[in-house]
Write a protein that binds this DNA or RNA. Sequence first.
DNA 1: TTTGATTCTCGCACACTGTACTATGAATCG
DNA 2: CGATTCATAGTACAGTGTGCGAGAATCAAA
Lengths: 277, 277
Amino acid sequence: MPRNTDPIAVSVWTRPPRRARRGQPPLSRDQIVAAAIELLDAEGMDGLSMRRLGERLGAGATSSYWYVANKDELLELAVDQVMGEMDIPDLAEAGWRTTARACAEEYRAVLLRHPWVIGLMGARPTIGPNAMRMGERMIGALAAAGFTGVELAFASELLSSHAVGSATIAAAMHQASDRAGKHPNELVAELDPYLRGLQDEYPGYIAVWYATKGIDMDKLHEDGFGYGLERLLDGLEIRLHSPDDALGAPEPDGIPGAHGTSVSAPSEPGSSGSSRA
Amino acid sequence: MPRNTDPIAVSVWTRPPRRARRGQPPLSRDQIVAAAIELLDAEGMDGLSMRRLGERLGAGATSSYWYVANKDELLELAVDQVMGEMDIPDLAEAGWRTTARACAEEYRAVLLRHPWVIGLMGARPTIGPNAMRMGERMIGALAAAGFTGVELAFASELLSSHAVGSATIAAAMHQASDRAGKHPNELVAELDPYLRGLQDEYPGYIAVWYATKGIDMDKLHEDGFGYGLERLLDGLEIRLHSPDDALGAPEPDGIPGAHGTSVSAPSEPGSSGSSRA
DNA sequence: TTTGATTCTCGCACACTGTACTATGAATCG
DNA sequence: CGATTCATAGTACAGTGTGCGAGAATCAAA
């Protein structure tokens, strides 16, 4: 019996999981995914191999392959699993801005708890059920704010992007400090002489470096995320109050609202109906 | 002679490259990095193995190890190499907003031309010379706008994050469509029935889905990026005009500028001088 | 209970990976 | 001319994902 002759096996999500046996099943897809996440959290991407996974499960090296087509699919399942950790407040109680903020914050928090996810994000779209559940909340909040159609999609992507980008920066720092076996702050302090020598070449960069010096790196990154989040929500909000000009058109330097040249506006801005092109 | 006894071998950038020989050097670090990028661009991360790299260079499988400590370091060099492709306009001519926008746009463009970079971004901080040169431009633009100190760092990270996040989403889609051997638009169309069945579960998500239906995916992502970029620049700009309240403090729903509870403000906002803590 | 069919586990094998080590040649220097 | 340094490449090792097939375990039906 061939394992993967399903013609529409585009993604894990289009194919039902293996039915568990009636008795006590010694293995299950959930168990496998959970064990994989444990390994990934503990030792990162390199820590997960199918052999080590089997070992941890008390099973054979290739036993997992009955429940999971391949390692990529296992990772996809693991990513969606951790996406389920997000806890988003009720829109009606919290209001759109608080809810949207919480979505971004929770997203970032998940990525920092499971940094291995970050390296997988560009590999395939996150369309698992939990990821979509979170997307639904985000969209709900922005729809309540007044966004519709493509602009709703754009605003949602903007917030997600910010979470991903911020987590990426923080995770990169942690990876580097873990590798060196030192606390991030310590590592940053040690990079000092190297950067000091480049003062002439990158004056602005170094100025920023020194402005942030002495501040705890984790706090700095978190504050930076929060700061950006508010700027971004502000930007969305003023857009809500003056949505007259061309959608997404670049504006010249000056007060936001002044109108520059109109380029690359998507068709039918503001329309939420479907239309084939 | 041991290869890596350098006690301060924190990163490639702290160690000088191998000196080329006087005669015609058949191999060089630049050549190796260039070949690696070719392989990565053509076939992605899986396409690059040290053996295949050697083959492409007409050299032995392990010959590259003379110029490069290990594969990770090679990747780090490759990442910084492509960062050098960015072309940023002159700040004095273009103004801060145009320059900042160009930085983000060029960053995103690089990531889409070399999608394998995205998967590496969380692995270590991008402190290569070319990455820093680009950071310098970005910071210069924002400093010209009026940002200082930590806020300058935050604003810079915000713009970078947006580029990374947007590129990640677009790259994920391309990876999926490449794997399926179909055009993104075609693939999206095929996912239709799967998503249609989830209409009750994720109504908002599906509404957005249909609103964007029929639009070319690449254009959609690019427009989304541009839209977010303008919102984000707007948010930064209004911050410049009313920087009175606590830095980065969340604001309640309503008009931006209304002040909520003050949390987690970094020490000495606005100070660009150095201060040891 | 016996008989098949289905569901699951697991060891083996294969091609491939990164890279430490070492031998060998080539260029350069004293 | 050695002697020394620089550069290349072959070998080997431990580890990877996973296709395949033998076998066990469990089910439904006879």
